[in-house]
Design a protein around this nucleic acid. Sequence first.
RNA 1: CGGGGUGUGGCGCAGUUGGUCUAGCGCGCCUGCUUUGGGAGCAGGAGGUCGCCGGUUCAAAUCCGGCCACCCCGACCA
Length: 571
Amino acid sequence: MRLSEYFLSTLKEIPKDADTVSHQLMIRAGMIRKLASGIYEFLPFGLRALRKVENIIRDEMDKAGGQELYLPALLPKDLWDKSGRWALYGPELMRVKDRNGREFCLGPTHEEIITDLVKREIRSYRDLPKLLYQFQVKFRDEIRPRFGVMRAREFLMKDAYSFDVSQESAEETYRKVFDCYNRIFKRCGLRFRAVEADTGAIGGSFSHEFMVVADTGEEGIITCGCGYAANVEKAELGRESSEKKAPGQEKPLEEVETPGMKTVSEVGKFLGEPENKFIKSLVYGYGKGELIVVLVRGDYEVNEAKLRKYLGVNEVFLADEKRIEKLTGAPTGFAGPVGIKNADILADYSVEGIVNGISGANKKDYHVRNINIGRDYKAKAVLDLRKPVEGDICVKCAKKLAFSRGIEVGHTFKLGTKYSEALQADFLDRQGDKKPFVMGCYGIGVSRIVAAAIEQGSDEKGIIWPMSIAPFQVTVVPLKYDEPGIKKVSEEIYNDLLKSGYDVIIDDRDERPGVKFNDADLTGIPVRITVGDRSLKEKKVELTLRKGLKTEKVPVDEALSAVKSIIEKQI
RNA sequence: CGGGGUGUGGCGCAGUUGGUCUAGCGCGCCUGCUUUGGGAGCAGGAGGUCGCCGGUUCAAAUCCGGCCACCCCGACCA
């Protein structure tokens, strides 16, 4: 490609509404432009990176036995009714009507569609297992699109679905895809790790997320030396045994006036008690208006994902003032477990060890001291309901957990028979019995990988691409292109590289050297060959690696082989 | 959706106590000359219904009302 003809314009200044490195650089390097909130145009330079990622994924999926197909983006409502997700999905689902008023949605994911397709096509256990995948644009009307292409409302995803005869066989398929994913992200040059994750709205029994390690990541992850790694949403926490109750320590309940003090820290200061003496009581709503009281230790926070999972619902929310007042008889801030009627109480492990704890009195401007579980209130269940904090220990090995951040680029789920049962997708087994498919589903955010790669690879000058997904592998930079000697040598090298099948671009613009160097650095092309009269006098050109910006001189006729060996080594 | 903020040539911004604003600056863009190893210099030039609608006024980018768009902070997700 000739840069003089290429549809690329780079920006010197940082766009004001881009606040992450990858977003800024993708715009500055001319990869993407914004059309509307969360909706982006991919320009040729950006698309090249996207396609490279896509090709790596396709290659590995095929090697893992996958078969590519292509499903529609516009999906009829009835299939979504059958799975129940038309009602469940909420406003994130983009809904549209056709001219006859029939309802459709723009697919946010494709479990229903593929399950229905496989149901119509496959009838026998002999045709199983199957692993099907596609690259498709997905639509999710995100509450808050963010970070450019990282959280967009329309984005490119590779989604795969597996169909197996049994749980065991599905397990094996899951393992296969899991390994495949590891190879994909490795080939994309990413530093990542797989963590245990919450299953969320997709459903199913078990899942892993593939996290690209980055401080700007939206996800919190915990890791342990023993190998345990999980999304903070999912991270299991054990039962604490530190504070054992001793008989006779329990003191009688005592109401104390705490005028206007609502938060744990306010009341704690006022009473001179540490926050871990408090039983934080939160009223949550779920389902059709049911309420539940959730207790955690004062210095901890409720993990709503765990609460949702326990309740078996898709949504929980903190109850509003009115409902709290109705339940507790007091305004928000004074709720407590003692004397609650008409709602169940769930206690996190962290509150069962609290002796003579403090909580709201369910009465305006009052708290209660010396609350003890069992004696003063009964919990319907005591379980793991909180978020991990610094200092927590691993459930598997009791060592201290480490916290880090990550960008979720892939997610694998064991779905079981959730969708096949809902859509009555059955096959006949060897005995002639009808059985629902045992399914798995596996997503990769293709456009997000591109952003994540930049998030992990850049410096103050611009992007530093991994060789495998760089839009171009080499750029040939002639300084003074119109000088015949320089033109001849740079064109020769350019054409040799082209003929050898490399992705190469030549900066044949009439620009000053500084402009060309800065653009080369900004766009992050891994190898740069500079052709200028200085080194040409010695019959040499300069070879610079974008990473580290180290330059060496190589003889003109060795340039091709030098570039070849660099690329082959890195791909 | 709740809270905070911003809308002025392609990009980044100034101007906003109403009147030298006939809207300005830097970058970018076009033409010419000079220049050419890390974002050149000079000269000339193109490009804006000041987000939209309405109001107040002799006079509105500037004041008032409504709407829209976009961004940031929280819950949702590849």
